[in-house]
Structure formats: structure tokens, C-alpha cells
Design a protein around this nucleic acid. Structure first.
Lengths: 127, 127
DNA sequence: CTAACTGTACTATTACCTTATAACACTAAT
DNA sequence: ATTAGTGTTATAAGGTAATAGTACAGTTAG
């Protein structure tokens, strides 16, 4: 179970991204316990040290709290989670637009490209 | 002059991205000579070996051709460049949508976010 | 208390990225 | 032929990411 990591980004960053997604989607509720370091390592097919680093980062960003002997828990600070959601949304949009602009794509080209992509997705979903 | 690299991605990949942008924007024309390995290294504030790897990658992807004793040149294959442009556009859009979707943002939320971002950009451009 | 589970810390090893430095091979101009 | 500029190759060193393995520290259930 579970290893499909891109080689171009450190695994620990990819796992952080994955957990952040689960949190802002609500799959992981505020206060909910995360799997233990060892358990998560097994689940993700990765070394416990890597998960340790992930949890450390999540704690540093006030997204999780670690309690020795008990586990690591999603923060109960709902304001922080709402902020995370908005931050991530804005950040991804900003990066995307900056990227496309640097490559010389016009606003219209980007807009058309997105519409085109959605149309294609729908067709493939019909199969 | 010239060093503002993100620590999260290998420098050589960032430089490749930068050169690709220049190529598809037309800042670098088909057949045009790229700066020599040593010159580009100086310009980017980076070790020649790193540029060597960049040029090697560009050649591997048929975007440039190296001629010993002469230099490295953008490919003259315009079809390949057009293909690159479309590939990059599609790839960025795909990644962006996949990312946003994984985080649970709806199509409308994405669309609204983009419009909002453009509006904000315009305001800041007025200063 | 004991056992089993948690987070935490450390060493060692491997691989990749980057730098520093030097040399080699080819081309063009003088 | 010499020189200068090109791509190319090689070695050594340092940093980070990830792995493997071990041990320590705190909590909880029995």
C-alpha cells in the first residue's frame, strides 16, 4: 500500500501537502488524532524518520500538536485551519498565474485553456 | 547579478524552466546561440557544472543542440517548440486543477478565486 | 509495577545536488 | 602552429533527503 511519490520533490513535503489537503477538506477534523509516527510510516511506505519530520513541520506551522505518549493531533484552532485554506488557495492561484505569465501566456489563453481542460475532463468522465 | 533560487527545487531544474520560458516566449529564437557554459554560469551565479547539466537536459529533450567548440544552440525544429509550448500549457493547467481539486476546492471556487486574483492585480497595477 | 503504545533523539549509510578545480577535445581566428 | 573560446569529463568536498536501526522518554491500560 501507498507509494507513488514524485522524484522531483522531497517526500516529506509531498506528505505534508497530502495531510494539509485532508485537513482543509475536513477528512481530518480539528482535534482528531493522526496515525502514530510508525503507523503512518507503514501506511505511506516510508521511513518513520520521514514522518517524524512531517509531524514536526505540521507542529511548527501550528497545524498539529504532539503529545508525548499520546499521539499527534490536528489543531483545534479553527481560525488557523480556515486561514490555511485561504492561504493555500491564494498561493496556488498566485503561483499558477505567475508561472503561466512568465511563459508568455495571455490571460485569454489561460482562460481558454482552463475551459478546454474542463470540457475534456467531462468527456472522459462519460466513459 | 542573478541568484534568487527557491530552495525547494534543484537549481538546475529552475534554470531549465527559465530557459524554456524564454524559448516559448520567443526571447530565444530557433537556432539562436545560448551563452556558453561558463558565461551562463557567471550570469546565473552558479557553478559551470550545473549549467552543463542544464544544457545536457535541454539536448536530451531535443530543445537544444550542442556543437563542440562552437556553442549550444536552440533547436531549429519549430514543431518541437510548438509542441513544447502546448505541452507546458496543458501540464501546468492539469497540475493546477489536480492540486486544487485534491484540496477540495470546487470549480466555482477556483473560478472565483482566479477572477478575484486578477481584479486585485489590476488594482495594484494602478499605483 | 509492567507492558505496550506514544513522541523524540541519535548514529550510520546511501544518494543526489551543488560547488571548486582541473584537465581534455574540438573549432575558429590569427 | 598558436591562441582563445567552445563543449566535455573527472575528482574531491560539503549539504540535504531518505533509509535503517537503536535507544530514550512520557502516557495509558492491565
Amino acid at each position: 500500500m501507498g507509494k507513488d511519490f514524485s522524484s522531483k520533490t522531497p517526500i516529506y513535503l509531498q506528505i505534508i501537502q497530502h495531510i494539509c489537503s485532508q485537513i482543509i477538506r475536513g477528512d481530518l477534523q480539528p482535534g482528531e488524532k493522526l496515525p502514530s509516527v510508525r503507523e503512518m510510516a507503514l501506511k505511506m511506505g516510508v521511513n518513520p524518520n520521514t514522518i517524524q519530520r512531517v509531524y514536526m513541520e505540521l507542529e511548527r506551522e501550528s497545524l498539529a500538536e504532539a503529545r508525548r505518549g499520546q499521539g499527534t493531533f490536528v489543531t483545534e484552532n479553527r481560525d488557523r485551519l480556515q486561514q490555511l485554506r485561504l492561504d493555500l488557495k491564494h498561493d496556488r492561484i498566485k503561483t499558477f498565474i505567475a508561472d503561466m505569465t512568465e511563459m508568455g501566456f495571455t490571460t485569454e489563453e489561460i482562460s481558454l485553456g482552463l475551459v478546454e481542460y474542463f470540457a475534456k475532463s467531462l468527456n472522459e468522465g462519460d466513459k
